[in-house]
């Protein structure tokens, strides 16, 4: 059963422009000029109940605008939209009971309150019955292991701790849909991993539909079976996540730190992203990476080496252009 459906969804908005300087400012008082920006264009999307969907794309792609339309924060300019059977922008309270939204850069918490008081506040706001509240709270506290920081004022929590509280607050009322906009942004690897495990558990045990936008490949790869790629407000890909990465994430980013300043002539066969006296970062085709690593280990004294997946921006750009070449 589809819990989210959009058809030809479009959002355009006006942006005020003015000439630079005092003259431009005075002129704009009398004659305003605007440009039209299309944030999301003709977007079709269906999401089934219980699905874990990844939404990826570079900055300004339209991901957040889409999430804002799905949560009712902003109204679409045209097209059809239905979330849990509601037209989101009417912002009916019964609709708001059906979902929760967590934005990595915007807190839903009340900083002056302790986490425990925040939970109580949300219990009242969502009219959560005592038994359900207690059961959910105990479950999430145990899952995150945060029992020792419940009585601490939210403003004193670390970023990772705060994000855990954001997720608990969002899920207390058993929402059918959870919208996550960059939930792991700025978090260290340990906290990111904890949050991924938490989300996976919530999706599997509670059947919560989760829509996740993230710049971190690891978030999408480890959590979402299906993903949607968006760029310039247009849907570029909608399908299996593994398939997407197999098709388009064709390179690995390898950074080597050398013990001595050496000329790495043979590395020039690959795309060099950065070349410093003791450090080289290069983009290598996946199938060539093993061979190259063998070469590097045999030829150089290494201080350090790191192997990363390609930047999401490159992958999305490749999908967008349909080309396979690699840019430095």
């Amino acid at each position: 059963m589809n819990i989210i459906e959009t058809r030809n969804l479009t959002k355009t908005y006006q942006r005020f422009t003015k000439e630079p300087g005092l003259k431009g400012s005075i002129k704009s008082l009398f004659k305003r000029e605007f440009t039209i920006k299309t944030a999301v264009s003709g977007f079709d999307l269906t999401v089934q109940e219980g699905e874990f969907l990844g939404l990826i794309g570079p900055n300004g792609a339209g991901k957040t605008t889409l999430v804002k339309m799905l949560t009712g924060i902003i109204a679409p300019s045209s097209g059809e939209i239905s979330v849990a059977g509601y037209y989101p922008n009417r912002l009916e309270n019964s609709f708001k009971q059906e979902y929760a939204v967590v934005m990595g850069q915007k807190s839903q918490l009340f900083f002056e309150l302790s986490a425990a008081d925040t939970f109580l506040l949300f219990k009242e706001l969502y009219h959560i019955p005592e038994e359900e509240y207690r059961k959910n709270l105990d479950y999430f506290i145990k899952l995150f292991g945060v029992s020792d920081i419940l009585d601490v004022q939210v403003r004193t929590l670390s970023l990772g701790e705060r994000m855990k509280m954001e997720l608990i607050v969002a899920l207390l009322h058993n929402p059918k849909i959870l919208f996550l906009d960059e939930p792991t942004i700025g978090l260290d690897a340990v906290a990111q991993k904890q949050i991924r495990q938490f989300l996976k558990e919530v999706n599997e045990t509670k059947g919560t539909t989760i829509i996740l936008t993230s710049h971190y490949m690891e978030d999408i790869k480890s959590l979402c079976k299906r993903c949607v790629v968006i760029n310039g407000g247009i849907k570029l890909y909608d399908g299996d996540t593994d398939q997407l990465f197999a098709n388009y994430q064709t390179h690995k980013k390898i950074t080597i730190s050398l013990e001595h300043d050496k000329t790495c002539s043979f590395l020039h066969e690959h795309v060099i992203l950065e070349a410093l006296p003791y450090k080289v970062t290069l983009l290598v085709k996946k199938e060539e990476s093993q061979e190259l690593l063998k070469d590097i280990f045999s030829r150089y004294d290494l201080n350090d080496i790191s192997i990363e997946e390609e930047d999401i921006g490159n992958v999305v750009e490749r999908i967008y252009t349909g080309k396979s070449e690699v840019k430095a």
């Binding site: 949560t71 924060i73 912002l91 934005m103 807190s107 839903q108 706001l125």
Partner: peptide, 12 residues
């Protein structure tokens, strides 16, 4: 600052 949505998404 773009944080007004905090109140728009809760049933209040």
């Amino acid at each position: 600052s773009g944080t007004f949505s905090k109140y728009m998404v809760i049933p209040v």
